[in-house]
Amino acid sequence: MMNKTPRRSAIGLVLAMATAFAAFVPALVGAQTTDGASAYPTRPVKMVVPFPAGSSPDIVARYLSQKLHERTGQPFVVDNRAGAGGAIGAEAVARSAPDGYTTFFMVNSIVTMNQFIYKKLGYDPAKDFAPVSLVAAVPYVLLAHKNLGASNLQELIAKAKAKPGSIDYASAGIGGAGHVIMELMSSEADIKLMHIPFKADGLAAVIGGQVPLMFQPTTTAVAQIKKGSLIGLGTTGSKRLSALPDTPAISEVLPRFSADGWQGLMVPAGTPAPIVDRLNKEVAAILALPETAERFAALGIEAWHTSPQKMQETITADSAKWGKVIQAARIEPN
């Protein structure tokens, strides 16, 4: 009997531990799935685009949303919330539940420029959003109407220096990316141009000849150049684009100039990390598709997948750069 007691005690201890573990496992599984990440998404997801249908970010967002639908089995529904340089859409996202069912397809100006332009924003660029991934590097093109009388950037600079303030340019509004980039180029070229802000993007006015000049993302500029509606005087990247091989980079004339834009995906701050990770992985898979490379090249843009941390680092660096440009140019809304 003396030999069996320790054995029975050991067996009892093992049974007790097994019972405790069995009770613990459901709690552990519940802790891992209470945020819904394991099955995400289980219903349609809204993708807020803070610009109008047909705009540069809208074009890319609709492609991305379709591919996300195909990969997840749930619709990613584009919701255009245009206005105030993207601030209206950004505010709507900032006020949304951080549950993964509202996503934000945005452009760099919303989190790197607007805080230096608007005295009051309905969102905090640093606190209200969580980065998922960059999606596309989007150069801009300096577009000109044929009646401008300048067929290249050197001629534009010479014309502007001969009569300072005599050449108008359009933008999608005060403080928009096109406005800020033009101010940077004007500073580098030491010229003075007159800004004409539009509530829409102003492209129609340039095509119609009412305003002779503007910066436009490649996603919409390439088609206009190929149709012959407008001419391209320069691109904002460090090298020429394969989609526009005859259009020089502005840095070929102004070596210090650099002003690429980008588009990316964010979610409301507080969205569970597993959901952010799932979205990041899906974006990576989509951007790796040969179809994506082909589609993006035709638009003059490049796929650009990053980790959430790298996206945040890019936002921080760009905020410092554009803040200096905006303050130097004294850009303020009406």
Rank of each mutant, 00 (worst) to 15 (best):
G175C: 08
I88F: 11
P125M: 07
S109E: 13
L68Y: 03
A285Q: 05
E313S: 13
S55A: 03
I196N: 09
F129Y: 09
Y63D: 10
A90M: 09
A297P: 06
S307V: 04
T306S: 09
N280L: 01
D277S: 14
G149F: 08
K146C: 05
V25W: 02
I191D: 00
M194Y: 14
A97C: 13
L156N: 09
G300A: 06
K127M: 13
V206A: 05
Y101N: 00
D201Q: 07
F198P: 03
L121Y: 11
V48D: 02
I11W: 15
A137N: 12
K46E: 15
M106K: 14
Q210F: 09
I59L: 10
L233Q: 03
E332A: 15
E294N: 14
D79F: 08
F296P: 07
A39S: 11
N152Y: 00
P44F: 06
I167N: 01
E183L: 10
Y123G: 02
Q66V: 10
L193E: 05
A317G: 08
M2G: 15
M214A: 08
A22P: 11
Q115K: 13
G175T: 11
D168P: 00
K159D: 01
G176M: 15
A37V: 06
K119S: 12
E282I: 02
P308F: 09
L148Q: 02
K159R: 02
T102M: 12
A293V: 07
H195L: 06
A16W: 12
L193P: 06
A90N: 07
A150V: 04
L148P: 01
Y140V: 12
Y123C: 06
E302R: 09
V138C: 05
T247P: 00
K324F: 13
I286G: 00
G237S: 09
P50L: 03
F296Q: 02
T5L: 15
G122C: 01
V141T: 09
P125N: 10
E291D: 11
L156Y: 06
Q115P: 11
W322R: 08
A130T: 11
